[in-house]
Design a protein around this nucleic acid. Structure first.
Length: 273
DNA sequence: ATAGGCCTGACG
DNA sequence: CGTCAGGCCTAT
C-alpha cells in the first residue's frame, strides 16, 4: 500500500543492497502478476542480467538492468520487497523470487496480489499503460507553479484530480488528504473553482509533505529490505487521515469522513473550504 | 468521469 | 458474519 514516500523509501533502502548484483534466475509462483511479456519469456530473458540502478517514477520502481532492460515493479496495495538469504524459507504470500549472484533472494510479497511486475525494453514503456501515461512527478524540478497551472484544467473535485496518476504521479489516499488539509482546501472543491493562490499553495504543500514523509521513511511498516522491518514515522504527523471524529489540530471541530471517488476521505469542514 | 472488480487479512 | 484497507484497470 505504498504511495510515493513509501516507494521512495523502498528504493533508497534497496538500491545499495542489490546494485551491481546479477540476477541468476527467477521463480514465478503466481504468473498472473507478470504483466509483460509472458511469464515464460520474462523468466528466460531476465537471467544473468546485471542490476545497474534503481529509480522511481510515481509509485513505480524501475530496476535498470543490463541489456537495455528495465524490471518494473508496482507494489499495489499490499506489496513488499524483502531480501533474504538463500537458506531462509520464503515468507507467506511470496509470489516472485529473484535469485542473485551473492546467495541472496529478493522476494516479492503481496497478500492482496494487486501488485505487478514487468520486464520492459528500457526505451519503451508502452506495454504498461499506467506507467506510459504517468503524469509529472511532484518531486521533480518540473513541478513548478507555471507548469502546474496549465495542468489544473478540470471540473473534477480536487481530491479525484490529485489521485489521478496521469496528472500528478505518486499521491495516494493518505497523502492527498494530508496535503489538502495543510493547504486548507476542501476535497470536494472543484479544480476549476480554485484560486491561483490555492494552486500555488498546493504546488508547495505537495512536495513539502512528500519530502517530510520520505524523511520519516513513510507512514507505515515498510522498509523491509533485510530482517529489519522498520516502521515509518510519518503516521505521527498525520493530521486528518484516519482521524475521523477526532478534534482538528487547528480548530478542534471533529474531522469528517466521506466517500469520494470511491475512497474514504478525511477533512476538517471548518479549516478546509 | 464515475462505479465495479480484482484479492486477502484484520477487525467489529 | 459484514466492512474496510495506502491502487489500478475496465466497463459503463
Amino acid at each position: 500500500m505504498p504511495e510515493l514516500p513509501e516507494v521512495e523509501t523502498v528504493r533508497r533502502s534497496l538500491e545499495p543492497k542489490i546494485k551491481n548484483r546479477v540476477i541468476r534466475s527467477v521463480r514465478i509462483l503466481l504468473p498472473r502478476l507478470v504483466k509483460y511479456p509472458t511469464p515464460q519469456i520474462f523468466q528466460q530473458s531476465i537471467q544473468n542480467l546485471a542490476i545497474k540502478a534503481i529509480s522511481r517514477k510515481g509509485k513505480y520502481l524501475l530496476i535498470e538492468l543490463s541489456d537495455e532492460k528495465t524490471l518494473v515493479i508496482h507494489l499495489g496495495m499490499s506489496g513488499r520487497l524483502l531480501l533474504v538469504d538463500s537458506h531462509t524459507t520464503f515468507p507467506k504470500h511470496t509470489h516472485i523470487t529473484l535469485h542473485l549472484d551473492n546467495n541472496q533472494i529478493l522476494c516479492f510479497i503481496d497478500p492482496r496480489t494487486f501488485g505487478r511486475i514487468a520486464l520492459l525494453n528500457t526505451s519503451d514503456y508502452s506495454p504498461l499503460p499506467g506507467l506510459y501515461h504517468l503524469g509529472i512527478d511532484p518531486l521533480s524540478k518540473a513541478f513548478s507553479k507555471s507548469n502546474i497551472v496549465t495542468l489544473f484544467k478540470s471540473n473534477r473535485p480536487i481530491k479525484a484530480f490529485l489521485m489521478d496518476q496521469s496528472k500528478i504521479a505518486g499521491l495516494g489516499n493518505i497523502y492527498v488528504d494530508e496535503c489538502l488539509f495543510r493547504a486548507g482546501i476542501h476535497p470536494l472543491k472543484h479544480v476549476s473553482q480554485l484560486k491561483a493562490e490555492q494552486i500555488d499553495l498546493l504546488c508547495k504543500t505537495i512536495p513539502n509533505v512528500l519530502t517530510t514523509a520520505i524523511r520519516m521513511k513513510g507512514t507505515t511498516v515498510y522498509t523491509f529490505v533485510d530482517d529489519e522491518e522498520k516502521s515509518g514515522k510519518f503516521q505521527k504527523f498525520l493530521k486528518v487521515y484516519g482521524k475521523t471524529g477526532e478534534p482538528c489540530v487547528n480548530c478542534g471541530s471533529p474531522v469528517n469522513k466521506i466517500t469520494l471517488a470511491g475512497r474514504s476521505t478525511h477533512f476538517c469542514p471548518v479549516c478546509q473550504k
